[in-house]
Design a protein around this nucleic acid. Structure first.
Length: 219
DNA sequence: GACCAGGCACATC
DNA sequence: GATGTGCATGGT
């Protein structure tokens, strides 16, 4: 069987077992961006608290966030953890957004994908996963999001090298899957759910939708 | 009380 | 290039 077929079979198995994931859980593209930064190494539950706090403060909007003191912003997002670091990251992103794209989301996402990805990566505090999450879930641009769960699942199923880098894993999906935003969206969301529920470190694979696929849970 | 969560930057070797 | 560490809250 081809790797492409295998990846699609795995997708179908996860989709059947878990259903539609409805990512990204946000009302606006700007909220996606804020959430992408806040969720770095953080449980989504705590990100929701921070987002709610921002909303209550009327700060969940680029222009309003721009006018906030960094220390004030930090207090609003405290529940998301590493809050001083993240307040600085949000501020830097807002600056970039206005200086480079005049605060225009539509214009920003009209930038060619590779160019925009490089721009995002040049903002301190925006790494590969955050950049790709912004591009895919806020901009609806076809870039695959890789994360720790994705890496573990790919490794356990022997699909990639143990030491594959982020970019190598992303290229793996880009090479073997059709370039489709909706597919990328759902695929990543499903991998995260499977990772959380079944593919934890040292955990067994019982009940995992991917259990019937060749795997080695010791990895 | 340890461990983890939808990472990233920076120092050091 | 690889490895180690700080950031920090809140749930299990």
């Amino acid at each position: 069987m081809s790797t492409s077929q295998l990846l699609m079979d795995m997708f179908e198995a996860m989709a059947r077992a878990l259903g539609p994931q409805h990512w990204w859980p946000a009302k606006t593209p700007w909220e996606v961006i804020v959430g992408a930064i806040l969720t770095q190494n953080t449980a989504w539950r705590n990100v929701e608290k921070a987002i709610t706090r921002l909303e209550e403060a009327g700060a969940l909007e680029a222009e309003r966030m721009r006018g906030l003191e960094e220390s004030t912003l930090a207090e609003y997002i405290r529940a998301a953890g590493t809050y001083r670091v993240k307040a600085a990251r949000l501020k830097r992103f807002v600056d970039f957004f206005y200086e480079r794209h005049r605060g225009d989301l539509e214009a920003m996402f009209a930038t060619p994908l590779r160019t925009l990805r490089d721009e995002l990566l040049s903002v301190r505090g925006i790494g590969r996963e955050t950049a790709d999450a912004i591009l895919l879930y806020a901009g609806h641009l076809p870039t695959f999001v890789v994360d720790a769960y994705t890496a573990r699942i790919l490794r356990r199923h022997g699909l990639i090298d143990e030491e594959a880098t982020y970019d190598e894993m992303q290229e793996f999906f880009a090479f073997h899957l059709p370039e489709n935003v909706d597919l990328y969206n759902e695929y990543h969301a499903l991998l995260v759910q499977v990772g959380k529920r079944y593919c934890r470190p040292k955990a067994r694979c019982e009940g995992c939708p991917l259990e019937s696929f060749e795997h080695d849970m010791t990895r």
